[in-house]
Design a protein around this nucleic acid. Structure first.
Lengths: 360, 360
DNA sequence: TTGAAAGCGCTAACAG
DNA sequence: CTGTTAGCGCTTTCAA
């Protein structure tokens, strides 16, 4: 076996060697050698920002790359340029359409800027979130988007030290890490309670999961309690059932427990449309009229709440738009970072809308 | 400004310089210099596979790394070792719990092996899939998992040339790219139709999306038609409404159209539980008894089909398990690849189960 | 507009 | 078990 040459000095295919497989994947140097130019010229052909260049040569280069099956090695590019071209995004769960819509909105904005989104899901678990953050940061994202403001101390520290823009979404926080794009879950729930109050409901209950695992759910419960008290109403009708994500089955179980415990209950605010739908279906199974016997409200913009009969009153959110807003903010922050600046922390508030529907 | 030294030869912090910020992020060389050892020793401390080593030194190294805020640079590691430590997975949509469960199962297996999953979603669009595949391959994944067998010719070519294991899921294919983990959507739908037939239903309809965008939906429709013919039944009651993903609203619209067109219809097989639920709710709105006036069946293991009343008959799938199976196969394939071998193509068939429930 | 040189931070391979 | 040497494939920087 001949002494191994540095790849850059390997004989080109114009020489005796005619192996179609130049021992491993094709590199820029291979393409450059074939064309008798330097690899820098090939490299530049891949960055359209150098717009004004001899288009003829550029086309030739790109065509040759295609012919030779050359694929740009992003790992080398990232390593060399210190620009990974991607952003890390963490959401509690994939199969929650509200969060995945937010991820979708984020992606739609970042894709236009050539940034990919690396998605992770935490299963509503803060230690898992920390682990994911740690793993993702080793890949040097140019920005990080997390859901909510509950993180382990170590995770907060990692994010602050990462040296890249960080956005917390789906919440408004007293002590944000850097940027925030969200809304107050407590306030939104309070607004819903007030609407029910205006409709004449007085004995209103809350149905959600156990607090520990879901900060947003806990905030909604808090908003319920505070608003009920402000309205001089009894805030004690409260059911905790299941861990986040609270399922439809949890909602069904919870509503049974609720009516059993407080038969005089008139309306129930559920931590999400999913739970609310479970409650609605359970009422139908038991022959309880909704909203006649019990009015039911949910939270979020889930398809099922609009598709079912009766439709479920809810706090409607523009989840996709929230993702887009986060994406636009992140793009500005990344542009600043690339220019050596740091964007001053911003707080963007997302509107919500109480949609009264058939279930109340 | 002093001449720039190569980083490796920078003075260590024991010298006069006492800047806490050694001009940029901490590297292995910084840690090694601090401890007076070589960076190879630091590098080795991060690979536990070298189990039997002086644990004392190793602990010291890791502690020092922590103190200095060192984070391993995965981009450099990937570049140097040619192992990216991640796998690319493409699903049609995030907010479809069946697909996200599959992604979840995949992740659960790969995480144990230290492999991350880079998730992409195609929005049920083949050109989008090609673009994603192209982008992801530039990051050198160690394996690729795609949903279904419908790809652009260019995408097929890219995957075949990628030099890493490829798995197609959620389908059984006549011409797989390499490995397959899935089931026959046509056969499963046929089995459902036979069950309905056994129950006494004869005038059975199919409700799904327009074919173009969803190969699996088209397969289900094909399975319906073929089985109806085999049973000597009329296969012409067929509604196409909306593009993939077929929504609950599409199901509602479709069932109205269906009953309008063929008032004698006894049962409808929907392309998914989502569409079926939409159909069910529409029947409830119109006061049509289900299954009295019309029996309704769906496809997939969606929560809503179990939570609603009546529960919806469906083709139940172990989506999480399908992801796990794909993950286990991929791990074997990657192990082979790392050892310079190539695993012979495998086809793994996933079971499904017809669950007859209240809606039929 | 193009080229040459240097090196990003890490690991493979080999030597001690 | 630890150290040394030599790059991985690209981009940055500077010069032509």
């Amino acid at each position: 076996m001949p002494a191994r040459l540095p790849r850059n000095e390997q004989p080109t295919s114009t020489a005796v060697v005619n192996s179609s497989e130049p021992s491993g994947p094709v590199t820029m140097a291979d393409v450059a050698a074939r064309l008798g130019i330097s690899k820098m010229t090939v490299s530049r052909a891949f960055r359209q920002s150098n717009g004004g260049r001899s288009n003829e040569l550029r086309q030739t280069i790109l065509r040759t790359c295609h012919e030779m099956g050359y694929v740009l090695d992003q790992t080398a590019r990232t390593f060399s340029s210190k620009r990974s071209g991607f952003v890390a995004a963490l959401i509690p769960a994939l199969n929650n359409s509200n969060f995945s819509d937010t991820a979708h909105g984020l992606t739609s904005v970042l894709a236009q800027r050539g940034l990919q989104v690396l998605l992770g899901y935490t299963d509503y678990d803060i230690p898992t979130e920390e682990r994911l953050i740690r793993e993702m940061l080793t890949r040097r994202p140019e920005g990080v988007v997390v859901t909510g403001g509950s993180h382990t101390p170590a995770a907060r520290k990692l994010l602050k030290a990462a040296g890249v823009p960080v956005i917390e979404t789906w919440d408004l926080l007293t002590d944000p890490i850097e940027h925030t794009v969200g809304f107050s879950n407590a306030e939104a729930t309070g607004a819903l309670v007030r609407e029910l109050h205006a409709k004449g409901y007085r004995r209103i209950a809350f149905l959600g999961g156990v607090a520990a695992s879901d900060a947003r759910g806990a905030d909604r419960r808090r908003g319920f309690v505070e608003t009920m008290r402000a309205l001089k109403l009894d805030a004690h009708r409260s059911i905790s059932v299941g861990h986040a994500p609270v399922s439809m089955a949890d909602g069904a179980r919870g509503v049974a427990e609720l009516v059993d415990k407080w038969p005089d209950v008139e309306a129930v605010v559920c931590v999400s449309d999913h739970a609310a739908f479970g409650a609605l279906a359970e009422c139908q199974r038991r022959g309880w009229a909704v909203p006649g016997r019990l009015a039911i409200a949910g939270f979020g913009s889930f398809e099922v709440g609009t598709a079912c009969h009766p439709q479920i009153t809810t706090v409607a959110l523009d989840c996709f738009g929230m993702g887009r807003m986060a994406g636009e903010l992140l793009v500005r922050a990344i542009d600043s970072a690339r220019g050596g600046q740091r964007l001053a922390p911003e707080i963007i508030t997302i509107p919500y809308n109480i949609e009264m529907r058939g279930s109340t």
